[in-house]
Amino acid sequence: MAYEITLVTTMAISILFALSLNFITGFCGQISLGHAAFMGVGAYTSAIMMKADIPFLLTIPAAAILAGILGLLVGFASLRVRHDFLAITTMGVVFLFVGIVRQQEFLGGEIGISGIRGSSFGRLGFMAICLGLAGAFAAFSLLIKRSWMGYVFDSIADNEDVSRILGIDVSKYKLIAFVVGTSAAGIAGALYAQHFRFVGPDSFGFVESITVLAMVIVGGIGSVWGVAVAAAFLSVMPLLFQFVNDFKILAYGALLFAMMRWAPDGLAGIVARSMKKLRGRS
């Protein structure tokens, strides 16, 4: 039972994390190669607060706020640059994050922070919290997708110059996407710290950023269901198959390449096409 709880909790945290990136990259079309940094900010925030005997539930909003503030700053920077440079800028953020954390004694430096006290909810209760938060963010994402905000995001992802000549304040919408997406990543970080009872600089680096991007692309950029399924599946792969864990970057790299080559619209696209075919036949 304990093993299943661990699996489900891992899945739920990954789903929340992947959906948080999906909000920025999938909905608003802003690529990020450094999303793990925001999870890291949330994880460290929660870890330090837990060490200071603050109740776990209070660390969650704090993690969201700090990650969101960093997200706002990166968002402002993103307004000045375009696509390819945004990739480099966000990559810079994650290297900067890891570099800074390594140097800080109060963050545990190279070693990180271990022995984080467990929440008062028990393993099962914590799993329920993770599932609840992942579910809530998925529901929120679906709602936004249907709203006029989602409509505007679609236009920005499509062609932001056109959005502007339709009177849309592109910068405001992008900043909102960044703040929402990075805050949610911060929450995922707080859950991560509680789940593993440990945070370290290597947990939130470039590889983790690429991994979460792989989840979004494999799921189908912008598709809430697709990304959730991909995140659930890909997050437990390394736990189930040792070789995936050993060759993480290789496995995800190959998967990313295969998806970009043969199914750029991801699982969601594959499902949509098969449904169409089936319906066409009947």
């Binding site: 709203s147 006029w148 905000m149 409509y151 505007v152 679609d154 236009s155 992802a157 499509d158 062609n159 056109v162 339709l166 009177g167 849309i168 304040d169 405001k172 919408y173 909102i176």
Partner: peptide, 25 residues
């Protein structure tokens, strides 16, 4: 806007009042 139908292209512009403020959108 390539991923949208012509109707969606035009309707987005028709909704200018709704898209003015992101929070009301």
């Amino acid at each position: 806007l390539k991923a949208m139908t012509l109707l969606e292209n035009v309707a987005l512009a028709c909704g200018a009042e709704k898209t003015r403020n992101p929070f009301s959108a």
